Amino acid sequence: MPELPEVEVSRLGISPHMIGETIKEVVVRNKQLRWPIPEEVHLVHGLRINSIRRRAKYLLIDTDAGSIILHLGMSGRLRVVPTSTALQKHDHVDIQLDNGQCLRFNDARRFGACLWLNKSEDSHTLFRSLGPEPLTEDFDAQRLIDLSRGKQVPVKSFIMDNKVVVGVGNIYANESLFLAGIDPRRPAGKVSKKRYIALTPIIKDVLAKAIEQGGTTLKDFAQADGNPGYFAQELRVYGRAKLPCVNCETPIKSVVIGQRNTFFCPQCQR
């Protein structure tokens, strides 16, 4: 499933081709994705794209009438192609531009979304309870310390909670906790303040490096230009069950936490 770095890479890939261009038409071939596509998305016909933003794992294509919200779900993919490009199976939505190009949304599993926002982000139920962006100053160690006190949930689940901080998905939670030397099973409230102070910049650094390297291609994700993300080559624990730890050569363990596969070194992470 595309996580925050992959969505940010998609935003960076499509933005130069779309910002400042005028939307000719939105063509919906399949209205039923994760949620039904609302008729309001057609309000953008004839309008200029002012900006393309990311909030958590959502992309917002802003016009004067409102914003089209896109979510990639489990297998969604965005490509900027000539409108005349032959359709592929599962090409569900085109945002066609006056210049003959279009943003084409392909989603084999149909867990993605194309929705509408006509006011501020806080007015939409999807955004109302989201925590801060991890790469901003609003996310700091003090927030983790304050929100974790008394919490018995595993620290991995805690930092993946979008109410705490958005976008720290499964891959990057595994990697960050390994680099911080924190056992992902440890109750969030039992992690010391000192360790949260160390963990916070690690989370930021892991996400920033993943964006810089084009995300992580494991199965479904590719960049907007079709190229894979290269951060997979940097993974130290994720997907490495039974392989030797890169630090101490102890076999990496795998457990399930919050219904997600979790990888850690029992020697390096305490």
Rank of each mutant, 00 (worst) to 15 (best):
Pro5Glu: 07
Pro5Ala: 08
Arg11Tyr: 00
Arg11Asp: 01
Ile14Asn: 05
Met18Phe: 11
Thr22Cys: 02
Ile23Asn: 09
Lys24Ser: 14
Asn30Ala: 09
Gln32Tyr: 06
Ile37Leu: 02
Ile49Asp: 06
Ile52Thr: 05
Ile61Met: 14
Ser67Arg: 12
Ile69Asn: 00
Ser75Asn: 01
Gly76Arg: 00
Leu78Cys: 02
Val81Ser: 04
Lys89Cys: 07
Lys89Asn: 14
Cys102Arg: 15
Arg109Val: 07
Arg110Asp: 06
Phe111Gly: 06
Phe111Lys: 11
Gly112Ala: 01
Cys114His: 07
Trp116Lys: 10
Leu117Glu: 11
Leu117His: 13
Leu117Val: 11
Ser120Cys: 08
Asp122Met: 07
Thr125Gly: 00
Arg128Leu: 04
Ser129Gly: 04
Gly131His: 00
Glu133Thr: 04
Thr136Cys: 03
Asp140Pro: 00
Leu147Glu: 12
Leu147Asn: 02
Lys151Gln: 15
Val153Arg: 11
Pro154Leu: 06
Ile159Thr: 07
Val165Tyr: 12
Gly169Met: 06
Asn170Ile: 10
Tyr172Ile: 04
Asn174Pro: 04
Ala180Thr: 03
Gly181His: 12
Ile182Ser: 09
Lys190Pro: 00
Ser192Arg: 09
Ile197Asp: 03
Thr200Gln: 15
Ala210Glu: 05
Thr217Asp: 04
Leu218Asp: 02
Phe221Ala: 04
Asp225Met: 06
Tyr230Gln: 14
Phe231Tyr: 15
Glu234Ala: 14
Tyr238Ser: 03
Ala241Ile: 04
Leu243His: 13
Cys245Phe: 12
Val255Lys: 12
Gly258Tyr: 08
Gln259Ile: 01
Cys268Phe: 09
